[in-house]
Nucleic acid binder design. Sequence first.
DNA 1: TAAAACTACCAAAGCGCTTTGGAAAGCGAG
DNA 2: CTCGCTTTCCAAAGCGCTTTGGTAGTTTTA
Lengths: 381, 381
Amino acid sequence: MQKVSCEKKGNLRSATIKVEHFPFGSILGVIGTMNLKQLSERLGLSQTTVSRALNGYPEVSEKTRKKVHDAARAANYKPNTRARSLATGRAMTIGHVIPVSTQHEMVNPVFGDFVASAGEVYSRHGYDMLLSLVPDSEEEAFYRDLKIKGNVDGIVVHGPRMNDPRIPLLIQLELPFVVHGRASDVKTPFSWVDVANVTAMQEATTHLTALGHRRIGLINGLEQLDFAFRRRAGFLKALAEADIPPDPELMVSADMTETFGYDAASAMLARDTPPTAFVVASMITALGVRRAIESAGLVLGRDVSVVTFDDDLSYLRNGTEAEPVFTAARSSVREAGRRVAAILMSRISDPLAPPGTEMMPYRFLTGATTGPAPAQIAAEA
Amino acid sequence: MQKVSCEKKGNLRSATIKVEHFPFGSILGVIGTMNLKQLSERLGLSQTTVSRALNGYPEVSEKTRKKVHDAARAANYKPNTRARSLATGRAMTIGHVIPVSTQHEMVNPVFGDFVASAGEVYSRHGYDMLLSLVPDSEEEAFYRDLKIKGNVDGIVVHGPRMNDPRIPLLIQLELPFVVHGRASDVKTPFSWVDVANVTAMQEATTHLTALGHRRIGLINGLEQLDFAFRRRAGFLKALAEADIPPDPELMVSADMTETFGYDAASAMLARDTPPTAFVVASMITALGVRRAIESAGLVLGRDVSVVTFDDDLSYLRNGTEAEPVFTAARSSVREAGRRVAAILMSRISDPLAPPGTEMMPYRFLTGATTGPAPAQIAAEA
DNA sequence: TAAAACTACCAAAGCGCTTTGGAAAGCGAG
DNA sequence: CTCGCTTTCCAAAGCGCTTTGGTAGTTTTA
């Protein structure tokens, strides 16, 4: 139809339209694109029958079905996604909305692995993945539009905050969703996949206190994010159990970059009474902490101990399975991605079922970065 | 329409359909979703006029346009993406296809930053981003389907290989695309954004030879990928200029993980005549190299020098602007993402224009990880 | 042997939008 | 007053698919 407008040069209106909506799609698209109508004509069947044959409905004889399948393959026919979606009312697409703070424009290093593994599950189920980076100021409107414009059947919520307003919003929108992480203080039940952050960090910290460390620095992620809040809670719990009063100077939180780890650890190590150990919220940050320790002329695992949370990133494995480098609480973010996707798939097929929640397991690994607290006695005196 | 099928319990066929295609979308979707027809009825105007008013066509009086806009805002009306796409023939979506090798299931750490910055450009232009992870065995079919099913208007090619078959394929499919990187040996012109890998690595290596290093290890990315091939070429060029015969034992390539950097560097350092310097293809790998150097009891920048390629990842900055940590050739992958997206946008609006190509600038930064070759004389003797 | 029940197909009505091809109203010029 | 030209709107035809509500023809059942 757009082609017509190109040929009718006489019509000013059409000419204008042509400029604004140049219909290259149809011009170029003609070449290899066969549609249902053409295919059914070629077969001497109705569109109904061809559609049913291809979609596996029973009202088609096996003989016909085979003929249709063969012809479709031969003609390289694939139904047009948009037309199909329009007709079915299902977008066959999952949205991943990554909140982008305007202040700290940083992509969570975990993101690639998470999305990759989730995407695998989607494609097994015939779903596509839509990725959107949304400034946090526009978040609410964005989710609403996503629903109204109908381009996704479900979404994954990344980076949940403490009392995240997105959750009630999505419930109200009746848009199936699964949260990667949790949101403390949200009262209505919702679907999530999370790791036991409190326990993990508590165990990590206790590992250090058991080794005699009493001045332990916490280098955490942004604490407005729920996971970081929980990790701090676990840290504090372990300190309390060991009767160590928390020192605010030894607890920092920010985006989990390598640089942050370096800066934070360097600053703490430069204090009069430096910490003898660090609990770190991510491998990347831990690498920065290591750098700080080494440039302070100290030896990691002897002078200063480090325990970290390890997301088991594909490009940043924590040593080998047998021989981890960092002492760490490890939980695979790829596995989390798969679980999130699986739960979302089932929520979409049965949106009225109760929310699915899943606590990811973690493993505590003792590596070479922790050892007994040095010269503890002197410091206490 | 699906609702009907749910109510007609008597009909076996409908019941079957209900199970296979549960139409939750329409059941739940009714709530907040107003369509063009309803909006136009509410306004007492035709759908045509409302559509034109909203899309900025001139055939609408300003008074009417305002009325329409106000009503649309009040009713929270947004046109259904799929219907619009079907009517216009444009998907308003860009596809990013990430090849996933079944052997080394790894997500390029660069990916998150790249996609984030590209996505920003897309959304400014009203485009969505579709992300697909495709096993390399199914690649060709996947691109073909993407075209035929019509769910994207253009795509970004990641991880181009030397004589990448995807490029002629995409040209033949007449699907607008831009390659992140280049593909040597592809004769037909195509759009790409790349960094001067050869020059960058040559400069990096020459920096080392000028410091007197003669045994230099290359720790490269997978050399079937074009960028890694080029980086090696630059490395070899610099060696040749310095009259240093390349030593195959000192050149390795693999996925650019931290672990690989550690393993490769450790192995080389354990040789009888260990290298005095390394050229590394990525920051992540360089971190592993540093770890290897330190666990060998050597001092980085004094005993062993390291130059790396630095993609300027958001979570892994190479120190500060004023004080880089690694001596490095830096080129921002986020900037590359933006350029790729921009070129793709323009190719889509004018697909017949000649391909857009862009060579990204890089900066060579001298950090603290390189120094004069130690005890060079002894080794030469 | 007639009625009931399948089986295997089809025509046509959407899905919600854009775009075409008018057509009615308004307006200045002849 | 009429003709031609805008301006402003509309009815209706798609976009390519799925799904409904049939209808013939063939078995099966009573």
